[in-house]
Design a protein around this nucleic acid. Sequence first.
DNA 1: GGTTCTCTGCCGC
DNA 2: GCGGCAGAGAACC
Length: 288
Amino acid sequence: MSDSSPPASARISPSQAERIAEACRLIADAERPPRLDDLAATLGLSPWHFHRLFKAVTGLTPHAYARARQAERLRIGLRSSASVTDALHEAGYSSSSRFYEQGDAVLGMTPTAWRAGGAEVDIRFALGECALGAILVAESARGICAILLGDDAEALLRELQELFPQAELVGDDAAFAARVARVIGFIEQPAIGLDLPLDIRGTVFQQRVWAALRAIPSGSTCSYSELAERLGMPRASRAVASACAANKLAVAIPCHRVIRQDGSLSGYRWGLARKQALLDAERGPQAT
DNA sequence: GGTTCTCTGCCGC
DNA sequence: GCGGCAGAGAACC
């Protein structure tokens, strides 16, 4: 339920970051999720220290990272495999029955529904007005799946349709509209936190970047290259920027806190004026 | 339902 | 900065 406690961004040395990047590669290359002890031994660290370091760098535990990677392989496999069972096995799931036991935790829906492009899955949405202009909040069964900002409601709705082309979009839900008020309150006062579950969908790399974004404290900023370094990929600042741009959860995943090294704002999916306003608000009264 | 593994808090060097 | 333990809980078989 709580999304309000991203990992503290401890100082990570380049050599530590490189070790964790190596661990990420090992996990990504393995058919089955490697064991914590084995990963730690390969990197020459104790399991406990490796675990802490991994989480500090990526924002995910090694196990969570491995599962995310496995889910990504499944998503790719579902597009190309002849059957859902084949895709499950190719992704390293030991048995399909256990996969189904877990319900829709991996894909947010059944594999067959996912294969169909997410058809028949409801996404509730509501439009509103906040200090930054029009806002659209959308929610799947798993949590808030999009927070979009813009100048007019129709454009936001089109954007939502493009993000979830096969989903059944359901508006005018009074109960949900009440929750949107909480999101708007959070947009206008980020310091209060957003105590709603988030449905964060993206590749493993995007999820790593987004976890790192959530570790940037309110009121401070970071450059794309700094963020890339924190992820152990000092040359990947362009990829990091793309992942920031792919963020669908405005403010909840604070991509507005990433600016150019020279201090200029760089770009923002929802407009530079909004980026500036968000940063101003965070540096404002609640700053300690 | 037992076993194994992960995760976290805390402490020591 | 790193290693280690204890205990809770999740995952696995």
